[in-house]
Each structure stands twice: as structure tokens, then as C-alpha cells.
Design a binder for these strands. Structure first.
Lengths: 296, 296
DNA sequence: GGTTCATGTTAGTTTTGCTCACATAAAGAC
DNA sequence: GTCTTTATGTGAGCAAAACTAACATGAACC
């Protein structure tokens, strides 16, 4: 006799036990409530006993069910953790980098072939995201994040500052020519970018745009600008390549600092690995070139 | 993303890791080696790495695979143990009895309706087997075993003695009439039964049968006798009902003690449960009736 | 009393896991 | 050295399991 029930049924059961509801468990596991209901029925049939008291539409774990759920949860957790640990174990020739999605798309991606040419032995894994937990749990070799630095438990090095400027698509009509016309243009705003400094620098201290669109994802913002949907106060690193290519244009030469520069971060406990050194040296060089190109 | 691979694949992987071979893992899990091979491929695909080094037809675990297998084994073991514990938790109205298979078939089964009539509230679960581990791990309420008693860690009570005698099918021809004819009859022997005492009691101290068949399973032995395949020195409790019914006959009235009587055993730590008391009282009464019927 | 929400069930569909058949190659026997 | 045995891997087809859709039932809420 098989000492284990169908393992999928255990996973369903544990989710119901933890969340208190077939519907919630279904949502959690991305299946219909009917699938969960079937799994519970299969499991209880296999075990030859009920794991829940049914009171109308309420499901209440029996005491035996509660204890079983704790044991199953522990075991499933162990397997998941072992799986994650296995998948994240360091490979000397892979380098896994967490990056701000927009920075990855517009600044890093076009430059990566240069890294690859200089360091052909590395497999480069980009992981788009904004969080820090993948750094803590060992899934990343290093990350590029925006902020003010001073993150606890991480080593960090300033990579480069960022600025923001007004941009539009080259084909955008009517293209604002004066600050007065800027004030009547269709604006695409990003809630993460404050207009205060730019308005002051432009001599429009008392004016704030009333955006036609707000996008919290910078990739959406930049793409909307590129499509000619409006103008935006965008980060230079995201638009500089398009400006050089001629598909976007600066509306004015006014640039102001963005309050959150880019940082390289890596685990405090990280051994001084070769790949960390290689990538850091390369990207710092690239950042310096970018900044110097901007200032000449 | 699902943090767990297909759990069936983990089970397959763990078996290969433990047994060192796809073929052995397949045997262990009662599937073809092809199923295991597919599961390994699925798992390695999910994980994005190899768990084994393949050298010709050898499979060698990588170091990462070895560590992962240990974690998975622990987790699967926890689930299996939790499942078993859940399934074996005591139910007040179930009584689970471990019984010697032959005794169950020939002695206990015919009497169980009497128990059921007297104690209708119990669900009776018979578990045929000879071992003691199911007693230790809480799967049984009590057991009937043969032996000399004095088992450590168990409470025990002598149930009844056993005797052995020569029997044949009523239709068996030629039926031995004399001890001389016994010596030329087709003999079905059970390795667990010594002829020494019987031969001495029969005045044939220098004779031992050369069996045409030996069966280590008493059910096979008794059935073979019933089918007229030969004569056997069988345990009385197994054949008495058939003798009374006329399908088997005693070849002689010579009966000698069997060296291993029947015992009731139950866990030392067992609380004095009602069902234990009920069943013990009943079966001791039945055993006494059987023995008294034999002696009158 | 009507509506909403949760669980359970049946029937049909989709996916997964399995077997079968075969391929390949290494190890063992002669 | 050749033949046989044994192990692993793969593709195709089938069966079983898991899933969804639709509906039923009943409790809770308005």
C-alpha cells in the first residue's frame, strides 16, 4: 500500500487549512474552488476519515486535521525551501543581477553585449524587480537599486546619479516650443517623480501639471511617450539612447537631479567573488562613461 | 511561480537517489523504469539543473543532488509518518486486531459473527500478519500471536494451547488406515511443524516423513489437504471446523501439543480501553469453549 | 424575500503520468 | 572479439488524474 496520498491533494489541503476557505485556497493555488473541493474529497477518501467539520458553508478543521496540516505544512515548506536553495546555489559562471525593470530595459540591455564581449565566460541572468528579499535569500549575486543608500545588512556602492528632463516623441504634434506651451500639453506623469524641482528650475514655481495619464511603471511611461501620447518628465538614463537615436526629443535643456541615485548592492556576507568584481568594475566604467558623456 | 516541482517527480527522484538505480527505483515504486526516467527529466527541467552525473549507464548523484535528496527524503518521510499517525489514531468504535493468517481464516472468522452480535457497536478490522512492528507503531489495538510469550515491551495473556494431528480429506484415497500405511502416504509438510513428538507418540520414533510438498503458509497446507493432495500434520484449531463438517477426517486419534500456544498481546502503554476488555473477554470465552469441547 | 457567497457534485475536457516499443551503450560472459 | 545482458533515455499513444464549467444546495446578509 502507498504510504502517501496524492501529494497534490496534500498541497490543496494545507492551503485550505491555512486560509480557512476552499475559495481562498483555490485563489492561492490558481485553480477553481471545484478542483480544491475534489482534492479534499480524494484526500479524505484515501485517509478514511474527515479532516473538517462541515457546518453549513463553514469548514472547521478537526483537531486531527489541524495537527496533520501542521505536519504537512512543515514538510511542504522544507521541500520548497530545499528546492529554492538548490535552484539558487551559486554557479561560478553564472552571474545573477537584480535590476530596476526600466533601467534594465533602457540602459543596461543595450550595453550588455559589451560586457559579454569582455567576459564571455559568464552566463548573465537579469532579474527584474524592485525588492530586496531576493538579495537576502541568496537568489542574486548583486542588484542595482535606486534610493538613498545606507541599507542595513547590505554592502553598497554608489553607481551614478540620475536626472530628469522633459521629453516628447520626435513626431509628437503640437510640440511645445515655449514653457507656456508646456503648460497646455498632454502630460504623462509617473507618481514616483516629483515636478517641484523641475518647475522651480523652469521658473514655473507656482505651476504643476494636471496629468492626462499617470503610470507607476516607468517602462509604460517611456513607451507612451515614444508612441506620442504626450510629454513626460523622464529619467535621463531611460531616454538618452532614444534621444541620441532621434526618436525622442528634449523639449527644453532643463535637467534637474532625481532624488534617488543608482546603487550597486550585494550581500554583506558575500565572499569577494571574481564575478562580483568583474561585473562591478565593468558597470562602474559604463556608468562613468555615461555620466561623462552627459557632462561634455 | 510554483515553488514546488511536481511532487510525484520528487518521490521518484528520492527513490533513485536512495537506491542508486532507475530500475531499482521503478521496482520500489511499482512502475516501469521509463516512468522514473521521465520523472527525472521533468524534475531536472523544472529545476534547471542536473541532479546526476551520467557516465555511460551509471547514474551518480551530484553533491547538490545528494543534499537535495536528503532534504526531500526527510520531508517525504515526515508526510508519510504524519499520514500513518493520522490513520492510526484511535477510533473508539473500531477495534483493529492483528492475527496469524491461518488462525484468522480457520478459527476466528467463523466465530466473528458471534462477537458482532454481542458487541454490535464495534467495527472489526482484522490485519493478517505475523510481525510485531504494527503493534509497536500503534496500528493495532491487540494481536494474536503464537510463541512462548515473555515478549518485551508488550502485555500478554495466554489464550490457548494448540495441538497437531494427522488429517486427510474425506474423499482422499487411499486413506491410510494403519500407521504402516501412513508411512507410504503422500505427505504435505509445513516446515514450522516438527514431526518428532507425533512420531514418538505414534510409536514411530525412528521414522520421519519424506514430504511430497512443503508449504510454509498454513493456509496453503490446509487447502492442499482439503483438495486431496495428501495428508498433513495440521494444527487442530485450523482443521477442527472442517472435521466437524466432515470434509476432513482424522487419520488417527493421536494428538500431540504444538510447542507454540496462542497469546493475546497488546501495547504495554495501552490505556485500559473498553474495546480491549470487551474483545479479550469474548475471545477468551471462545477459546475456553473450544478447548473444553476438545477435552470432552 | 431576494441576493450574495461558500461548498459540493456531475459531466466533460485537458493535462499528466504511465506503458510500450525501441534505441543506445556499457558491462559481463564465453 | 563477439554475443548477451542490463541500464538509461526517448517518442508515441493511452489511461488516469486533475481541472473547469455548470449547476445545486444552503447559510448569511441586506
Amino acid at each position: 500500500m502507498n504510504p502517501l496520498p496524492p501529494l497534490g491533494a496534500l498541497r490543496a489541503f494545507e492551503a485550505v487549512a491555512r486560509l480557512g476557505s476552499v475559495v481562498k485556497a483555490a485563489e492561492s493555488l490558481h485553480v477553481t474552488h471545484s478542483a480544491i473541493s475534489h482534492q479534499l474529497r480524494t484526500l479524505e477518501g484515501f485517509l478514511g476519515l474527515s479532516l473538517f467539520l462541515r457546518e453549513g458553508k463553514k469548514l472547521l478543521l478537526t483537531e486531527e486535521g489541524r495537527i496533520y496540516a501542521l505536519r504537512v505544512r512543515g514538510a511542504l515548506g522544507d521541500m520548497a525551501e530545499a528546492t529554492q536553495r538548490l535552484q539558487s546555489c551559486p554557479k561560478p559562471h553564472d552571474i545573477t543581477i537584480g535590476v530596476v525593470p526600466s533601467f534594465a530595459l533602457h540602459w543596461l540591455l543595450p550595453r550588455l553585449p559589451d560586457f559579454k564581449a569582455k567576459y564571455p565566460q559568464y552566463t548573465v541572468n537579469l532579474r527584474a524587480g524592485l525588492g530586496f528579499e531576493d538579495m537576502s535569500n541568496g537568489l542574486l549575486d548583486l542588484a542595482i537599486r535606486m534610493g538613498t543608500g545606507n541599507w542595513e545588512g547590505l554592502q553598497q556602492q554608489h553607481l551614478m546619479d540620475e536626472t530628469v528632463l522633459l521629453v516628447a516623441a520626435a513626431h509628437f504634434m503640437p510640440r511645445p516650443q515655449t514653457l507656456a506651451e508646456v503648460q497646455t500639453a498632454v502630460v504623462i506623469a509617473n507618481p514616483a517623480i516629483q515636478w517641484t524641482s523641475w518647475c522651480q528650475a523652469a521658473g514655473l514655481a507656482d505651476w504643476r501639471p494636471k496629468p492626462a495619464y499617470t503610470y507607476n511603471d516607468s517602462n509604460l511611461e517611456v513607451e507612451a511617450v515614444r508612441l506620442g501620447h504626450g510629454i513626460a518628465l523622464s529619467r535621463l538614463s531611460l531616454v538618452s539612447a532614444a534621444i541620441e537615436a532621434g526618436s525622442l526629443v528634449k523639449i527644453t535643456e532643463i535637467e534637474v537631479p532625481y532624488q534617488y541615485p543608482y546603487w550597486l548592492i550585494w550581500p554583506e556576507k558575500s565572499s569577494a567573488s571574481r564575478k562580483l568584481a568583474d561585473f562591478s568594475a565593468w558597470i562602474i566604467g559604463q556608468a562613468n562613461d555615461f555620466v561623462n558623456g552627459r557632462n561634455s
